[in-house]
């Protein structure tokens, strides 16, 4: 592991420990809880819930997640390109810097326009 990441690893363990330790410590410092079973019902503005929460929800959300996944991959491809862009320009490779990525983005733009027209992005 590059040595610079080891403090980061220790830091993330410390960050994980902070809420855990606080929760555990204060569980014993708190005064005890009192009250009947009504307190533990799920909150629905005073009425009892009628249906189970483990039901079905909008399928639209799943399509959004799929499209997000694809655009996420596209974004990840953009990062290495952005990092080398100015280097290519300095080496007078402007066409090489621009064209491959424009082709890539163009193909995905075609896809995006199709999605737009098809209505897949509505409430998406």
């Amino acid at each position: 592991m590059p040595p610079a990441y080891i403090p980061l690893l220790l830091f993330s363990l410390l960050v994980l420990a902070f809420p855990v330790v606080t929760l555990i410590v204060f569980k014993y410092l708190r005064p005890g809880s009192r009250g009947g079973p009504a307190k533990f019902q799920p909150y629905e503005c005073g009425i009892l819930p009628e249906t189970s929460t483990r039901g079905r929800y909008f399928a639209r959300f799943y399509i959004i997640a799929m499209l997000f996944m694809i655009l996420n991959v596209e974004t990840i491809f953009l990062f290495p390109w952005a990092v080398l862009f100015r280097g290519w320009l300095a080496a007078h490779l402007a066409a090489f810097a621009l064209l491959p990525m424009f082709v890539f983005l163009g193909v995905l733009l075609v896809g995006y326009v199709w999605l737009y027209k098809k209505g897949a992005l509505d409430l998406a």
Partner: peptide
């Protein structure tokens, strides 16, 4: 996605 693209435009300048 938009957040990523905005960052990419900054990284283009920064290199």
């Amino acid at each position: 996605t938009t957040a990523g693209f905005a960052l990419v435009s900054g990284f283009l300048l920064a290199g």
